Computed example of a mutant assay.
Amino acid sequence: MAIDPAIVGTEFPPTTLTVEAGRLRFFAKAIGETNPVYTDLDAAKSAGYADLPVPPTFLFAIELEKPDAFAFLAQAGVDLRFVLHGEQSFTYHSPAVAGDVLTATPRITDVYSKKGGALEFLVKETAVTRADGSAVADLKSIIVVRNPGAGK
């Protein structure tokens, strides 16, 4: 089933997360980050941060706080059995640190297909801001959906 391009422009409810130092340490360990600035408060402060900084890819985890983090795919009519990770990118505006309250506001910005509809692409962009509204980063993810019925 093709993804309805009418979903382009859909903005989803924001997710807010208070960044906790313990969670940042755990995340750094999970991704194999060895720079002490991400796990040691003294190292972080020596590097000029007010607290432990958020590791670069951590921001994608904010949206995973929702009870059903992939509901937007179901809303688009996507069968999760056929979902592939396409790509992700980050545009950083300012560093976030432990104690920051961050809000992620996602929206669908594009839907397109390739290979005669065998592959569909859903582009989601997410603005991450602090409680005061200042920009932290813009995230972009491209989700690929295999369409086994295409071309038959």
Rank of each mutant, 00 (worst) to 15 (best):
K140S: 15
A2M: 14
G133R: 05
A6V: 08
A44Y: 00
A2R: 15
I108F: 07
F27K: 03
D110I: 04
V54H: 00
V37W: 00
R81M: 09
T91K: 13
F121K: 02
E87K: 11
R107E: 12
Y92L: 13
P67T: 09
F27W: 04
D79E: 12
G22H: 06
D68N: 15
E125I: 12
F26E: 15
G48R: 06
G117W: 09
T103Q: 06
P55K: 01
A137V: 05
L119R: 08
S134M: 08
Q88G: 10
S141D: 12
P67N: 11
D79H: 09
V136L: 05
E63G: 15
P95K: 04
V101I: 12
T34Y: 06
T103A: 07
G32H: 05
F58E: 04
G116T: 08
P106F: 09
T105I: 06
F70E: 12
T126V: 14
V19H: 00
P56F: 10
V123F: 05
G9I: 07
P67K: 10
P67D: 15
L64F: 14
I142Q: 12
A98F: 04
D40S: 04
P13Y: 05
V78R: 00
T34L: 13
D40G: 02
K140D: 11
E33W: 02
A98D: 05
R81Y: 09
V101R: 14
R81D: 12
F58R: 03
T18E: 13
T105K: 14
D42V: 13
K140W: 09
T126Y: 04
Q75F: 11
L17Y: 06
K124M: 14
A137K: 01
T57G: 07
I142R: 13
V111D: 03
F60C: 03
N147T: 11
L17W: 10
A74Q: 11
G77R: 11
A69D: 08
F72R: 07
N147Y: 06
G9Q: 06
E120D: 10
S134R: 15
N35M: 06
T105S: 15
G117F: 10
A131I: 06
G151W: 10
V19Q: 00
A150S: 13
H93M: 02
V136I: 15
V128E: 00
A47Y: 01
F12I: 03
T91Q: 15
P95T: 02
A71D: 13
G86T: 04
S46Y: 09
P106T: 12
V101A: 13
A21F: 03
G133Y: 07
L73S: 07
K45A: 07
A137H: 02
Y49R: 02
A127P: 05
V8H: 01
T10M: 08
L102M: 05
